[in-house]
Computed example of a mutant assay.
Amino acid sequence: MTDEKRNDAGEPAASDILGAALGGAARRAGLDPAQSGSTGHIVWHAMGGWRGILESVLPTLVFVITWTVTVDPHSHQGNLWLAVGLSVGLAVVFTLVRLIARSPASAAIGGLVATAAAAALALWTGRAAANFVLGLITNGAYGSVLLVSALIGWPLIGLAVGWLMNDGTAWRADKRKRRAFFWLTIAWAALFAARLAVELPLFLADQVTALGTFKLIMGLPLFAPMVAVTWLAVRGLYPKSAEPVSESSSLDGE
């Protein structure tokens, strides 16, 4: 690690730590530009394969279908307890299957926690639309952080890729890389902003079925092409011979 990447006390700079955290997360998701593999394979791996897709989609899909088919034509309310019960139940099943199979369960556990928290919020407020509040907050937070990082000249995509490719923050001196990482980060921020722009009015109008439907439509179907574009752009910026950061230099202990 170069001196310019450390502060006066010899500790890693904030950009180093953040880059390591983001890069480590990308690597665990299978998004390491230094590794070989077709774009389709990388995107599929990033989504978690069939299991990951089912874990991501089914709880929300079951919630939406259950709520919709149980809506009373007079009160315009569905069976909230049944909807959240089936949704959380599915998340529990997915987590147990991974634990029994001794496969990595962090994504399933994270999904279970998020599903349970959303269900608890919906039950506490008595509003089915509240089941999607955490997703709205997440989209707003991610979009804002990505946008700000690009505007101040430290796009998060660049920090993650710099760590993965053992490039540190040297990419900031390369106009081509800096421009590419700026626009990639802006594109990801725009994705989260678009989700929020579509889903927030539906939430405020209490349009549960439409809200859940658009959440699914703007989820993996938009995530997959964004991963593909990012992957292709990064591979175009770095030759295949580029050396990835060694495991021993990882700041997250992996």
Results as ranks from 00 to 15, higher is better:
114 A>K: 09
115 T>I: 06
115 T>W: 03
115 T>H: 05
115 T>D: 01
116 A>I: 03
117 A>C: 03
117 A>P: 09
120 A>H: 09
120 A>G: 15
120 A>T: 15
120 A>N: 10
121 L>H: 10
121 L>Y: 11
122 A>F: 00
123 L>F: 08
123 L>D: 04
124 W>E: 04
127 R>T: 02
127 R>K: 15
130 A>K: 05
130 A>D: 10
130 A>C: 08
131 N>V: 09
132 F>T: 00
133 V>K: 00
133 V>W: 06
133 V>L: 12
134 L>T: 05
134 L>H: 03
135 G>D: 02
135 G>W: 13
136 L>I: 10
136 L>Y: 06
137 I>T: 03
137 I>M: 14
138 T>V: 14
139 N>S: 09
139 N>Y: 14
139 N>R: 06
140 G>C: 07
141 A>G: 07
142 Y>C: 02
143 G>H: 05
148 V>R: 13
148 V>P: 10
151 L>E: 11
151 L>N: 07
152 I>S: 03
152 I>G: 04
153 G>I: 12
153 G>K: 13
153 G>E: 07
153 G>R: 09
154 W>Y: 12
154 W>V: 14
155 P>F: 07
155 P>S: 03
155 P>L: 07
156 L>G: 01
157 I>K: 04
157 I>E: 05
157 I>N: 01
158 G>N: 04
163 W>R: 15
164 L>S: 12
164 L>P: 10
166 N>L: 05
